[in-house]
Amino acid sequence: MQTPKTNQQKKIQVDSSSMDRIHPMENVLRMDRIPHIWCPGCGIGLAVTAFAAALEKAEIDLSKIVIVSGIGCTGRVAGYVKLDSFHTTHGRAIAFATGIKVANPDMKVVVFSGDGDLIAIGGNHFIHAARRNIDMLVVCVNNFIYAMTGGQVAPTTPLTAYATTCPFGCVEPPFNIPYLADSSGAVYVARWTTLHVRRLTNAFVEALNKKGFSVVEAISPCAQYYSRINRLGDGLDMMRYYHDNAEIRNGEDTKNLDIDFQGKIIVGKFIDRERPSYTDRYNEWLSKVKGGENEPG
C-alpha cells in the first residue's frame, strides 16, 4: 500500500549525497515497515520522531525499554519502533504495561497511545495506574477524535465540534487530561503540541528519567477526520492554529487547562513531584513482613 509522503517520511529519507550513511533513526524505527499507515498531515509521526530523538538524548539502553500501545491510529506506534513492542487490546495498554513493570521492574515501560484509547475506554486503568504510581511514561497523542474508525466523538472532542457520532455538534465537555492525571496522582504531567517538537522531545527525556507515573499529552492534528469534518483545513492549518493559540505556561495549575473549540491551548510542564511507586510500596510491605509471621504453618 502506498501512502502519499508525509512530513515524517521526508525526514526519514536518506540524504542522497551520502547514501551509505545510516539514518540516525534507523536504530529506533523498523525501516522494513515504512511507509506507515498515517495520513498526510497527521501529527503522530512527529510525536514518534520526538520520541525517537528523546530516546537518544536520554541515553537509554534500547534493549531495556518496552513500548505498549492500544488500538487506534496512535496504537500503531508500537509497530514502527524497533524496540520490544506490544500492540494490545483497546484501552488496555496501561494495564498490560502494569503487568510488565511490576513483573520486571528493570524495564523502562512506555505506553504510547491515543486519547480515545487511554482516556475513553482506558480511563479506569489510567487513573488507577496514576494512583498506584506505576513507574511508566504514558504518551497520550490527543487528536480530539477517533480517527482509526472514521471520526467518532471522543472524550477529548471540544464542545460544539462535529464528529460522525455527534452529527449536530459535541455536547459533552472534554477531559482536561493534565488535570485528570494530576488528581489521580501522576508525578510528571506536561502538554505540548506536535508543533513544539523540541519541547516535546525534552518533555519525553525528563519523563523517561522520572520515576513514577508520567503523562505527556501531545496535541496532534488529524487532517483526515477532525479537520475535515470541522472544516479546519489541512495539517498545516492545524499547525498554524497551534502556533497562534498555544501559550506556554509552565507550572500552571492543572485545573486551568481546558481546551475550547479552536480556543487557546495552554502548554507546558505542569507537575513534577515525588511519590513512592507501586514497587516501592510493595517491597516496603514485604520487608515489614517478618520471616515466619506471614508463612502458613
Binding site: 534500547l62 534493549s63 518496552v66 509497530g79 520490544d84 513492542s85 506490544f86 500492540h87 494490545t88
Partner: peptide
C-alpha cells in the same frame, strides 16, 4: 522482553 530482541507482537 528486555533481552535485546526488539520484537513486535500484535493482536491483529
Amino acid at each position: 522482553i528486555g533481552q535485546g530482541y526488539k520484537f513486535h507482537v500484535t493482536g491483529l
